[in-house]
């Protein structure tokens, strides 16, 4: 009769949980889900801006992770690996919905107007004096006002830390388009944050 080993899951590092999960331990996998579920859901939510879809895609990501766990060799952290899975699912979903498109007014302006030099941030610190939580909320709100195409490059670049080349590959656009979308998105974000500051001072 095999000896049953009871691990201390809550205090085990990710590497151990992954190793146990790779040998079929669902309790170890559940602990990984518990530990990283908010980050994975948040990433899906940032990409999709729809709670139901984000919930569904984040759960699908966990199912895929379980199925592909043998492929995870620890080249990156488990959280990074998981985030990449959910991002790929979100990008696939956005493609299916044809929501990453170029015909929005914002993008037409971007394509036809080129990029101007100035960021519309007259104030050197448009968010000065805001509490951290309030600031997070304002940034989330501003991100929500970007088009999906623009938000996608911001999320992949600023939060995922992906290089232009990698973003181009994942989204299926040229590096030049990544650069112009990123610039346009930043300019919009700066404008939005500036207007939030104005609203606050009124």
């Amino acid at each position: 009769m095999p000896l049953s080993v009871k691990h201390d899951y809550p205090s085990a590092p990710d590497e151990s949980l992954v190793r146990w999960a790779q040998s079929g331990d669902t309790e170890a996998f559940e602990q990984l889900v518990f530990r990283h579920r908010d980050k994975i859901f948040a990433r899906a939510m940032m990409m999709m801006r729809n709670e139901d879809q984000a919930l569904e895609l984040s759960q699908e990501a966990w199912v895929k992770a379980w199925q592909r766990l043998a492929q995870f060799q620890g080249e990156s952290s488990f959280a990074t690996w998981m985030t990449r899975i959910v991002i790929n699912l979100c990008l696939d979903q956005l493609r299916r919905q044809k929501r990453v498109r170029t015909e929005s007014i914002d993008e037409m302006q971007e394509e036809s107007g080129g990029v101007e030099r100035q960021l519309p941030v007259a104030d050197p610190n448009p968010t000065a004096g805001l509490e951290q939580d309030e600031l997070r909320r304002r940034i989330d709100e501003a991100l929500g006002k970007l088009t999906e195409a623009h938000r996608t490059v911001v999320v992949l670049h600023e939060f995922e830390g992906l290089e232009y080349k990698e973003i181009a590959k994942r989204v299926g656009i040229s590096i030049g388009t990544v650069m112009s979308r990123l610039f346009y998105a930043r300019r919009r974000l700066a404008t939005l944050l500036q207007s939030l500051k104005r609203e606050r001072s009124e």
């Binding site: 579920r37 908010d38 859901f41 948040a42 939510m45 940032m46 709670e51 919930l55 984040s58 030099r117 100035q118 960021l119 941030v121 050197p124 610190n125 968010t127 951290q132 600031l135 997070r136 909320r137 940034i139 989330d140 991100l143 911001v154 600023e158 939060f159 930043r186 974000l189 700066a190 944050l193």
Partner: peptide, 22 residues
């Protein structure tokens, strides 16, 4: 412009919205 871009990037990166599973 370079300073503005730097500030904005730092601001966004350091204030990633915290969203919890509902």
């Amino acid at each position: 412009l370079v300073e503005g871009l730097r500030r904005l990037s730092l601001l966004v990166r350091s204030h990633e919205p915290e969203i919890k599973v509902p």
